[in-house]
């Protein structure tokens, strides 16, 4: 009898060991498609699950950390406030890899303030917005990312302009900003892996259709709409540091971005000739796409030189969380010195 052993990654784990509990979301929900790519990305990166912390806010999207990486600690926090929790976790233990999952309601409405400050601090983490233009969990109200003129299932038209979270993040100096689509697994997994190599906040806004409340004709966050409209800025490849391969390509047709851990992002250019290291171009491109009602995906902006939060905090190699008393409690002589000064 031949037993086939499942393949393993570079640290000897199978894909199954990166999975979570079975999803309880609606069949066909975009969020589940993203979950599948998160599992794949972490498996292929060979991340040690116990060194990962999963975080989320509240919403259908925020439930998903229960559906991947069972062997990682998870923190399903309160609505819109995952960024602060992530900041605290990162301060306590900067050796962990953080992945946060949020929704468009969770990030663009109730949590907009904390999102901005997370980005501003450049807390090292992957921050995924599973963007469906509605509040799924509270049954389909418009969110702040719904496009102007977009139609709700009930027929109501959205009369307010959307907040573009990618544009906002770039404006705030975010060092890694991507946009993708739950229906484009190839691009999404490459973006996720690249985000995993980034040292700083990596925001990925993923259009993730809500099949129950926002997948109809007239919705700009529906599968059909997104599939038809998606315009990738480039073909995105990610080469991890542990798998260096060189490829031949025509000069000028490829842009390579070296990441701090030695991994590389390879961007095969389209006729657009987009350069994601150019912040001004990124902001301009997003603005234009908006006006032209284009749905651009890919790596919008990257800056590998920005200092991340843990560097700014100036902590040592060992996590603060497990420092021994010898380090965290000053000596008796210190107290005596302070007391003498107060006499």
């Amino acid at each position: 009898m031949v037993t086939s052993t499942p393949p393993t990654n570079r640290i000897g784990l199978t894909m199954a060991e990166y999975k979570g509990a079975p999803s309880t979301l609606c069949d066909g929900c975009g969020h589940d498609a993203i979950t599948a790519q998160i599992i794949k990305a972490f498996y292929e990166l060979g991340k040690e699950p116990h060194m990962v912390a999963k975080l989320s806010g509240i919403g259908c999207s925020s439930k998903t950390p229960a559906y991947f990486l069972n062997r990682s600690h998870g923190f399903n926090s309160v609505h819109g406030r995952m960024p602060s929790v992530a900041t605290g976790v990162s301060a306590a233990n900067h050796t962990l890899s953080l992945i946060g999952v949020s929704g468009d309601g969770d990030t663009a409405s109730i949590g907009l303030g904390q999102f901005c400050h997370l980005v501003r601090r450049n807390v090292p983490m992957i921050y995924i917005v599973e963007n469906n233009g509605v509040y799924g969990l509270t049954k389909g109200q418009f969110s702040a990312t719904a496009d102007l003129g977009s139609k709700a299932k009930s027929g109501v038209i959205n009369e307010l302009p959307p907040i573009d979270l990618c544009g906002l993040a770039i404006e705030l100096g975010c060092s890694f900003v991507g946009r993708s689509f739950a229906g484009d697994p190839k691009q999404l997994v490459a973006l996720l892996k690249a985000a995993g190599s980034h040292k700083g906040t990596a925001v990925i806004d993923v259009i993730s259709p809500c099949v129950t409340f926002n997948n109809h004709e007239g919705s700009t966050k529906a599968y059909k709409y997104a599939k038809e409209m998606e315009t990738p800025l480039h073909e995105l490849g990610y080469i991890p540091f542990f798998e260096q391969i060189s490829v031949d390509y025509e000069p000028g047709s490829m842009q390579e971005v070296e990441m701090h851990d030695g991994s590389k992002i390879r961007l095969k250019k389209t006729e657009r000739n987009y350069d994601p290291t150019n912040q001004t171009q990124a902001i301009l491109t997003i603005k234009e796409a908006h006006d032209k009602k284009e749905f651009l995906t890919g790596l919008l902006y990257i800056n590998e030189d920005k200092e991340d939060f843990s560097t700014i905090m100036n902590v040592g190699d060992a996590p603060l969380a497990t420092l021994p008393q010898e380090i965290t409690r000053p000596a008796k002589s210190v107290l005596e010195e302070i007391m003498a000064g107060l006499k």
């Binding site: 912390a53 929790v85 992530a86 900041t87 976790v89 306590a92 233990n93 996590p319």
Partner: peptide, 10 residues
């Protein structure tokens, strides 16, 4: 939120 995140992480 930060204090809780930090406390949770040790």
């Amino acid at each position: 939120g930060m204090a809780l995140g930090a406390g949770w992480a040790g």
